[in-house]
Amino acid sequence: MSEKFFWEAVRDALKEEMIRDPNVFLMGEDIAIYGGAYGATRGLYEEFGEERVRDTAISEAAIAGAATGAAMLGMRPVAEIMYADFLTLAMDQLVNTAAKNRYMFGGRTKVPLVLRTEGGAGRGIAAQHSQSTEAWFNHVPGLYLVMPATPYDAKGLLKTCIRDDNPILFVEHKMLYGTKGEVPDEEYLIPLGLADVKRAGKDVTVIAYSKMVLESLKAAEQLAEEGIDAEVVDLRSIKPLDVDTIVRSVRKTGRVICVSEGCKMNGVASELVSVIQEEAFDYLDAPVRRVCAADVPIPMSPVLEAAAVPSAEDVVQAAKDLLG
């Protein structure tokens, strides 16, 4: 094991898969010479050359469209959209082409595409560079959605995604790149659709993903000081969703908080609430709570930004309300 930054884990996953499979190539804005807006492709251009690490012009449609076309040929492109907000510009290629391709053609084609992007708030860069847009894509049939919270999960999941035959949206929270965690030196893969209980507890289940896992763990520590034992379930992949792990935890605690940095209305947390009431209604001792972003665009001012997205304190408060 060695301690790695989140960005290093992403880079190592890309590097290992590029060495393993010559069909893996990268394309995106500023991923080559600059090494990625958040540094996750640093050094790969130097190692693999411009054919496999390609800087593109500013055209998200071109990136997603070209990657989809290459994937149909059997290549395994890992394309990067610099901000999750800019996915709107690649939306048609991703939603209408990549995600539907296999289905429309009756299973005769496959699109083994990974689209990496950086999402989330925390840098004060306002409404067009800070959104959590995952709920839009969770609604799209044919598209997987993976959002890791730790370097370990990022590396293991990204490697799996690259080997997977489906189009996958892989969202990295921009405030996670500088976080550190233990990563094995030997190769490992993490299957999609397998949640991870990051902290076991018996009083309340906190279901989260991406950066909200870290906030939830922080909340669990605070709650522990007050005698509340919270279990934190990290979804890791939102689609496919690990319903078994969710239900197992709900059966144990009977109380659930679903945490998402996306807007509350029609968000990922809303979907979790639906699943829980369908699959584990009889085990619930209280209404399921959602802790989400306010239904506002992300504002720039730090005062407003902090108020717009959930924090550990919000999770603590929700847990106290449930157990109070």
Binding site: I58, D85, F86, L89, G124, I125, A126, A127, Q128, H129, P297, P299, M300, S301, P302, V303, L304
Partner: peptide, 30 residues
């Protein structure tokens, strides 16, 4: 990011505007 800035601190450097001067806004999407 002050409450009395051009856009009340919602926008910041990327999103400033003053329609009275015929400015249709700065925009963060290239």
């Amino acid at each position: 990011h002050k409450a009395t800035g051009y856009c009340k601190g919602y926008g910041g450097s990327l999103h400033i505007t003053d329609m009275s001067l015929g400015i249709l806004g700065m925009d963060g999407i290239v």
